[in-house]
Computed example of a mutant assay.
Amino acid sequence: MVYVYLIIAVVFEVVATSALKMSDGFTRLAPSLVTIGGYGLAFFFLSLTLRTMPVGVVYGLWSGTGIVLIALIGYFAFGQRLDLPAIIGLGLILAGVIIVNFFSRSVGH
């Protein structure tokens, strides 16, 4: 169940960050409310994962996955282009998430 909570936390964080972009500096009400609610729910579900997993591992998985997903959303939804160094860096972040998730004994497998 801990991975379900972590996935839910990532989804809410990604939705909230996407809405943050659309909030235009909190000047648009609906995206601003989605941002606030999304981050609140993201941290709630993130806190549930911390009951059984180390904080450093949880944060690394949560933030790393969120970074890669937000970069993809930025590309597809907002037309934000990435140069080669950015793509390489994001690939390294994704590689780190995969390594921690599948090979670390710290995640509670």
Score class of each variant (00 low, 15 high):
residue 12 F to T: 03
residue 13 E to A: 14
residue 51 R to F: 06
residue 38 G to F: 04
residue 101 N to H: 13
residue 77 A to D: 02
residue 88 I to Q: 05
residue 35 T to P: 03
residue 15 V to F: 10
residue 65 T to S: 11
residue 31 P to T: 15
residue 96 G to M: 02
residue 15 V to I: 15
residue 65 T to H: 03
residue 97 V to A: 05
residue 32 S to C: 07
residue 87 I to F: 00
residue 37 G to P: 01
residue 96 G to Y: 00
residue 81 R to K: 07
residue 16 A to D: 00
residue 39 Y to M: 03
residue 40 G to Q: 10
residue 89 G to S: 13
residue 61 L to T: 07
residue 49 T to W: 01
residue 48 L to C: 09
residue 26 F to G: 02
residue 58 V to R: 03
residue 46 L to R: 02
residue 87 I to A: 13
residue 43 F to M: 13
residue 6 L to D: 01
residue 98 I to W: 01
residue 78 F to E: 09
residue 79 G to N: 08
residue 35 T to C: 10
residue 70 I to S: 12
residue 75 Y to R: 14
residue 100 V to I: 14
residue 31 P to M: 13
residue 13 E to Q: 12
residue 43 F to Q: 09
residue 24 D to T: 06
residue 46 L to Y: 04
residue 70 I to P: 00
residue 66 G to S: 12
residue 55 V to I: 14
residue 50 L to Q: 05
residue 104 S to D: 11
residue 19 A to S: 15
residue 60 G to Q: 11
residue 83 D to H: 14
residue 93 I to D: 00
residue 95 A to R: 08
residue 48 L to N: 03
residue 52 T to L: 03
residue 88 I to V: 14
residue 11 V to Q: 04
residue 59 Y to P: 06
residue 82 L to A: 12
residue 89 G to W: 02
residue 58 V to L: 01
residue 57 V to P: 02
residue 5 Y to G: 14
residue 91 G to L: 07
residue 29 L to V: 15
residue 21 K to W: 03
residue 25 G to I: 08
residue 21 K to R: 14
residue 46 L to A: 10
residue 26 F to I: 02
residue 10 V to R: 01
residue 38 G to E: 05
residue 62 W to V: 09
residue 81 R to F: 02
residue 89 G to T: 13
residue 63 S to G: 11
residue 39 Y to G: 04
residue 9 A to L: 12
residue 21 K to I: 14
residue 48 L to T: 02
residue 69 L to E: 00
residue 99 I to F: 08
residue 100 V to W: 02
residue 81 R to I: 06
residue 99 I to H: 06
residue 80 Q to F: 01
residue 102 F to Y: 11
residue 33 L to M: 10
residue 91 G to P: 03
residue 25 G to D: 05
residue 51 R to W: 01
residue 40 G to T: 14
residue 4 V to F: 08
residue 78 F to N: 12
residue 72 L to V: 14
residue 79 G to F: 00
